[in-house]
Design a protein around this nucleic acid. Sequence first.
DNA 1: CTATTTAGTCAGTTAATCTGACTAAATTGT
DNA 2: ACAATTTAGTCAGATTAACTGACTAAATAG
Lengths: 152, 152
Amino acid sequence: MMESNQEYPRMLGAMLRIPFQAIVAKIDAGLRAKGFTDLRPAHFVVFQHIHPEGSRITELAERAQMTKQSMSELVNYLEARGYLERQPDPKDRRASIVRLSNKGEALNHAAREVLQDIENEWSSQIGWTQMNAIKEGLNAIIKLIEEENTRK
Amino acid sequence: MMESNQEYPRMLGAMLRIPFQAIVAKIDAGLRAKGFTDLRPAHFVVFQHIHPEGSRITELAERAQMTKQSMSELVNYLEARGYLERQPDPKDRRASIVRLSNKGEALNHAAREVLQDIENEWSSQIGWTQMNAIKEGLNAIIKLIEEENTRK
DNA sequence: CTATTTAGTCAGTTAATCTGACTAAATTGT
DNA sequence: ACAATTTAGTCAGATTAACTGACTAAATAG
């Protein structure tokens, strides 16, 4: 953060932040419009990181860079409202596996739909070539980040 | 948010989120290393939006998409620690103008330095051509977002 | 087969942000 | 000119988000 304000040339941080926050706001509004009204921004992080075959609380917490206590709270909230299900892990009786319920899958699908619409809208205006260049470039950067993380 | 997890192809939201969060973490660590240890992540938003000639609380709140009460608290914290100064606005006796102190300028400069280092590091690995393509593309998207905002 | 690590919960705390009610100054409409 | 409305900011209190510390029970390592 703290990367810029309009007086200086915009720096890379702001260039990423502005479209990212626009996307977050649009997904939030889009989901609300589609009837998912009981989610708060903090819950999104669970859907971002959950694995289709289910994930453990600890794993989700680590991926989301928060404590397992905090993640536990988010998962409890979403489980209580029917977005997630907990199953005991047969391999490890201390652990449980959290997975999307049908409702959770529906939410996920709706979110992806909204996001695809945004991408289509932007692409049609700036051109698909340029959008592809952005995506390729960002994926290259992500590769660097992931390499750095695995080295640690 | 909620744009992806590794099982599906990564969507645009995640492509922006991952490098953005990496940048935030690096700036946070970099500033800490440079001796700015009394800032919390929430405060960064003030520096992102403050104008070199000073800004009003209301203006900062609007740009940061939060209430003026919340922004007021952030500004109070930073003023108490010497990063910001408040002056009465001569044009409007209800308002005050918040601006960076010398210490605040130093912080801003340090943050920009860290960010430039990140950009240089990434560019040298993916190539400056590709980095420029990303930046051009993101700026085109930002232009769309800004147009949409002004239409509202 | 004891010692340590790991998965998760419970309880309490701090940080971040919000809503509502308010004051005083500025602006608008007549 | 001046009443009505809007705007800038604060104060007080509530809610949400995330943290630390202490704990239990199961798994793993020596």
